[in-house]
Simulated scan of single mutants.
Amino acid sequence: MKRRTARETAFQVLFQMDMNDIQPQEAVENVLGEPLENAFLASLINGVLEHKDAIDAKIADHLENWSFDRLASVEKTALRIAVYELLYHTDVPQGVVINEAIEISNLFGDEKSGKFVNGVLSRIIKN
């Protein structure tokens, strides 16, 4: 599985968990139809879940005129994955992380999702 596909799949799993309050294994099986076997995908899902409080705090600290509770699930999920990669997968270039987050936001969100995610991530990497 390519990393782009892994990011999209991680997005779907984490989004489903956020929306339906289900366990990771159930969400993975709903999305993939099989057990999780890809190491990068597993690291994204498990890493976001393990560091969720720190990731959410980082996002909240960089929102301008917006509260974390008001974030739509699409943007919140895309930001969580990207911030996890920025903080804990330092082998991936920041530009790649941001570009992937924008693309995923545009794919699953509306026409403003990518711009919003780009703005938040830009503020995060500047600090």
Rank of each mutant, 00 (worst) to 15 (best):
M1C: 06
K2H: 12
R3V: 07
R4N: 13
R4G: 11
T5L: 14
T5N: 14
R7I: 09
E8D: 15
A10G: 11
F11E: 01
F11A: 08
Q12N: 04
L14K: 03
F15A: 00
Q16F: 05
M17I: 07
M19G: 03
D21W: 04
D21V: 03
I22Y: 00
I22G: 05
P24V: 07
Q25E: 15
Q25P: 04
V28A: 05
L32A: 08
E34C: 07
L36R: 03
L36K: 06
L36Y: 01
N38H: 10
A39C: 08
A39R: 06
A39G: 05
A39N: 12
F40M: 06
A42S: 13
I45M: 05
I45N: 04
N46A: 11
V48H: 11
L49K: 08
H51E: 05
A54I: 15
D56W: 11
D56C: 12
D56M: 10
K58Y: 09
A60G: 02
A60I: 09
D61F: 05
D61V: 03
D61R: 14
D61L: 09
H62R: 03
L63F: 08
W66A: 10
D69M: 13
S73F: 04
S73T: 03
V74T: 06
V74C: 00
E75S: 06
K76A: 08
T77R: 06
L79C: 07
A82Q: 03
A82R: 01
V83T: 11
V83M: 06
Y84V: 01
L86H: 10
L87F: 09
L87G: 09
Y88Q: 05
D91N: 12
V92Y: 06
V92I: 15
P93Q: 11
Q94K: 14
V96G: 01
V96R: 07
N99W: 06
E100G: 00
E100I: 01
I102R: 02
I102P: 04
E103A: 10
E103Y: 08
N106E: 10
D110R: 03
E111D: 13
K112I: 12
F116I: 01
G119F: 02
G119C: 05
L121M: 04
I124F: 00
I125S: 09
N127C: 10
